[in-house]
């Protein structure tokens, strides 16, 4: 597959401060790509430069074969952007916002109505099209923005923290729309997030910290590489369990009331368990999470909330 976004040696500096330092990555057409990192890591700077709003300091950023710094107008036509904060006109209705967007993006007049139907259908807002944006809830506004970002049929949709500040139910819905979209229109989706569980849905992830990409792979591969499955065992006979685990070379940590054992070599752990099954009262196997990946790579936990 050919890459639709290709970034080479991109650097962005503000005076002495280097926000993004010499990063390179590619995004395949039709995939969902996530930029993951804490606030201030350089996610938004990168997305804003790709969207032609910021000027780069050096490097090349190519979207759909066009240069984001020299062919701004062409790039703008082929991308849709949903920013972190609302950019809707609150004094206008949903329909008016969409129509105005169609004008800005030169959508042929006779197609406008059909497209409004399509995008509003996608985000379940067909019934509210005459409502003023100021009367909508936060989640609805975000859905309108996603609909608007799509109405000119962009090749790449940028979503800067699309679900930040939304309740879990709305977040789940937004993700439903994003996935539906990727399937139905084969759009490439480039998003930034600091929610770990969201990153796992994506095809590829780049973890960015202090302006540098510290890991870049599929969620599965990243987890495989950076996390270990753990078993949480509660037993009535601690010393015996410890003895068995040492004997079968299962590494473990003793915690308050339970043992945390390495579950990567599951055959050895199973032998320990079968030998001690009378005394063990509870076992829980936990798969590695993206938090662990992040912790492992950057040495710090990602902040879950702002």
């Amino acid at each position: 597959m050919k890459p639709i976004i290709s970034v080479k040696n991109f650097t962005k500096a503000y005076g002495d401060f280097t926000a993004v330092n010499d990063i390179s990555f590619e995004v395949e057409e039709g995939s969902i790509f996530a930029f993951l990192g804490p606030n201030g890591a350089g996610k938004s700077t990168t997305i804003n430069t790709l969207c032609t709003i910021f000027e780069k300091t050096s490097g090349t950023l190519i979207i759909d074969g066009k240069d984001a710094s020299t062919q701004k107008s062409e790039v703008r036509s082929s991308i849709g952007v949903v920013f972190q904060d609302s950019t809707l006109d609150a004094k206008m209705t949903i329909e008016e916002n969409l129509k105005m967007h169609c004008v800005f993006y030169h959508v042929p007049k006779k197609e406008v109505e059909e497209r409004i139907q399509f995008v509003l259908g996608l985000v379940d807002l067909l019934g509210e099209r005459k409502k003023l944006v100021s009367a909508l809830s936060g989640g609805m506004k975000r859905r309108v923005e996603i609909a608007r970002g799509l109405i000119h049929y962009p090749k790449v949709l940028f979503l800067d923290e699309p679900t930040t500040g939304l309740d879990p139910q709305t977040r789940a819905h937004i993700w439903e729309y994003i996935l539906k979209l990727q399937k139905e229109r084969n759009i490439t989706i480039f998003l930034t997030t600091h929610y770990m569980e969201e990153a796992e849905i994506c095809n590829k992830i780049a973890i960015i910290d202090r302006g540098v990409i510290v890991a870049h792979d599929t969620p599965y591969a990243l987890k495989k590489e950076y996390t270990k499955d753990k078993a949480y065992i509660t037993t009535r006979n601690g010393p015996e369990l410890e003895r068995l685990m040492s004997q079968y070379e299962v590494s473990y940590v003793r915690k308050e009331g339970y043992y945390k054992a390495d579950a990567e070599q599951i055959d050895r752990l199973l032998q320990v368990i079968s030998l001690q099954k009378e005394d063990i009262t509870d076992i829980e196997i936990k798969k590695g999470t993206f938090n662990d990946v992040f912790l492992e790579i950057t040495g710090k936990k990602i902040r879950e909330e702002e």
Binding site: R76, S77, F83, T87, D89, H101, Y105
Partner: peptide, 10 residues
């Protein structure tokens, strides 16, 4: 934010 929507458009 509305101006941002305008300025990121062609």
């Amino acid at each position: 934010g509305f101006m941002k929507e305008v300025l990121v458009s062609p």
